[in-house]
């Protein structure tokens, strides 16, 4: 916590810059859902500074282009919506998590075997495409947007909530055949990344404020239970929760 980069004055500066980026993006109808863009405008002009200056910053995407970011924001918000049971994936930063993962060594396939020949095998033989996760992800978004353009005259992010649920459900049941990537691979990657971002340690950009851990009652990563495992048999235990950064 002694890194000068995290000191308050710089945070304020960064916030101002990012807000401008956010507005620019919104004006170009890019990554922000329109409601979020309105919120940024509203904050800029009318709201006093919030206590947590990071809470409503517009995300900076490193990997996803505007269309892709809009798709991902819409998809994660549909997979895990905000409701009275708990936080939604979008508000917890899951779109940012996915952006960072697609830009990481994992997204770039750094530990996959990607030499040919490439032959379609049996389901038991597993993944046989020559694409890295980020290549597959990108192609899958184009495929789904092409499908919704043809059927609904809109990209996926522009659909009503009901239509988004319908498209994702059909993808899950493999009722939509995507032209480039096998539907199952794209759908499972999208859903897995959403769950990973929702539940992973917040250092990766999702699970903001450990909200998913609070929701299910997971006490985080820093508790020693040697003196608790017997005492709490069949009793509720909760503390914190603590993330990795909380413990540094």
């Amino acid at each position: 916590m002694t890194d000068e980069n995290t000191s308050a004055p710089k945070l304020v500066n960064r916030r101002g810059v990012l807000k401008l980026v956010g507005i620019g993006a919104a004006a170009g109808a890019l990554p922000l859902a329109s409601g979020a863009a309105d919120q940024v405008m509203h904050d800029m002009h009318h709201e006093p500074p919030k206590q947590n200056p990071d809470a409503d910053l517009a995300p900076v995407y490193q990997f996803l282009n505007g269309d892709e970011a809009a798709f991902v924001e819409a998809a994660v918000n549909t997979f895990i919506p905000s409701d009275d049971a708990g936080p939604g994936a979008l508000e917890l930063g899951v779109a940012v998590f996915i952006d960072r993962q697609m830009n990481s060594g994992y997204g770039r396939g750094d530990r996959m075997y990607l030499q040919g020949p490439f032959i379609e095998g049996t389901p038991e033989q597993g993944y046989q495409l020559r694409m890295t996760p980020s290549e597959l992800f990108r192609a899958g978004i184009l495929d789904v947007n092409a499908y919704t353009q043809a059927k609904y005259k809109s990209t996926f992010d522009g659909l009503s909530e009901e239509d988004r649920v319908s498209v994702l459900s059909q993808l899950e049941r493999r009722e939509i055949e995507l032209p480039t990537v096998p539907t199952m691979y794209f759908f499972n990657l999208l859903l897995d990344l959403t769950m990973q971002g929702y539940f992973a340690d917040p250092q990766y950009g999702g699970n903001k404020d450990k909200a998913s851990w609070k929701m299910i009652g997971f006490p985080g990563v820093g508790v020693m239970y040697a003196d608790k495992i017997e005492a709490y048999r069949n009793k509720k235990y909760m503390s914190g929760p603590l993330s990795i950064q909380d413990l540094l």
Partner: peptide
């Protein structure tokens, strides 16, 4: 193990063509 460097191929039975394990599982 990093599969980019070293992996194996797999098939269920000798009549099949074995294909590489491209991701861990």
């Amino acid at each position: 193990q990093n599969l980019r460097k070293e992996t194996l191929t797999f098939r269920n039975d000798p009549s099949q063509l074995a294909l590489p394990m491209r991701q861990l599982g």
